[in-house]
């Protein structure tokens, strides 16, 4: 735990982007998420930490209704995005997911060219009127994903031919290309080596300028490094949610303290 630099943290108060109240998730008979209340702020990196199976990924997937694809999953409670209930009947999950982008644990570029990977989202959402505009969007997204310089000469090469870290940054570029407001990241660095991890973390910090970023991570160091707020999940409960500095230095709940000091988990 020696590299837990909890520094450079602007503790200014941002507006609430996502507000969850009394969220319950069931997988069949299993009660996976119990009574979670959380307010996720705009232009902030929020980290979800906790032992495996504690429900942090499940909760993350509730935020853009990716759980809809699992037949047995059932969500109760309210999750408001800018004050609007995302589980309302009138909400089209497809539209929601354009606003709440997602990056997955395993880099999963489409087996298409780098260009097509990034251009796919803008294309299906009609964000570009012509080829020139699309080129511009792709370049901007790849620059945002901090991968432009590495791939600008081979945009037509297959995205699956990149290294793991490059693939993950390509996926981040793909996610930001649709101009989302919130970016959900489900353990984005678990398949990457330390160097690629550092690159992605740097990128996450930059993305904070424009987005609300929610990141699920198994690495407490990573949570400490990149996030401003941290939520600790345990057995489906949200145990503690506070400034990252406070969680890691002076947690209120004894379970949080046990986890970050390595006694449970």
């Amino acid at each position: 735990m020696n590299d837990m630099r909890i520094a450079e943290r602007a503790v200014d108060v941002n507006e609430t982007k996502i507000s969850a109240r009394k969220v319950q998730v069931y997988y069949g008979d299993t009660h996976a998420i119990k009574d979670v209340d959380v307010d996720i702020e705009d232009r902030t990196v929020t980290a979800f930490i906790g032992p495996s199976g504690c429900g942090k990924s499940t909760f993350l997937r509730c935020l853009n209704r990716m759980n809809d694809t699992i037949d047995s999953a059932r969500v109760e409670g309210t999750i408001l995005l800018d004050g609007e209930d995302i589980y309302d009947r009138k909400v089209d999950p497809v539209q929601l997911r354009a606003k709440v982008g997602m990056v997955f644990q395993k880099p999963n570029p489409f087996p298409k060219s780098i260009y097509d990977n990034v251009a796919y989202g803008p294309k299906i959402h009609g964000l570009a009127k012509n080829k020139a505009e699309l080129d511009e969007i792709v370049e901007k997204a790849l620059r945002r994903g901090a991968i432009w310089d590495e791939v600008k000469d081979r945009l037509q090469a297959p995205g699956t031919g990149l290294s793991g870290g490059q693939q993950q940054r390509l996926c981040i570029a793909r996610a930001v290309a649709t101009e989302p407001e919130v970016l959900l990241m489900d353990e984005p660095c678990s398949a990457l080596d330390p160097i690629a991890t550092a690159q992605v973390e740097e990128l996450i910090d930059e993305l904070r300028q424009d987005y609300s970023v929610v990141i699920v991570t198994h690495s407490m160091q990573q949570a400490a490094r990149v996030s401003q707020k941290t939520a600790f999940f345990h057995l489906g409960h949200l145990v503690e949610y506070d400034e990252t500095g406070k969680i890691f230095t002076n947690p209120e709940d004894p379970r949080t303290e046990s986890y970050i000091t390595g006694r449970i988990g």
Binding site: T69, Q95, R97, F104
Partner: peptide, 10 residues
């Protein structure tokens, strides 16, 4: 692959 497509709003 399905997740990736759904994730970008397909």
């Amino acid at each position: 692959i399905r997740d990736a497509a759904l994730g970008v709003g397909a």
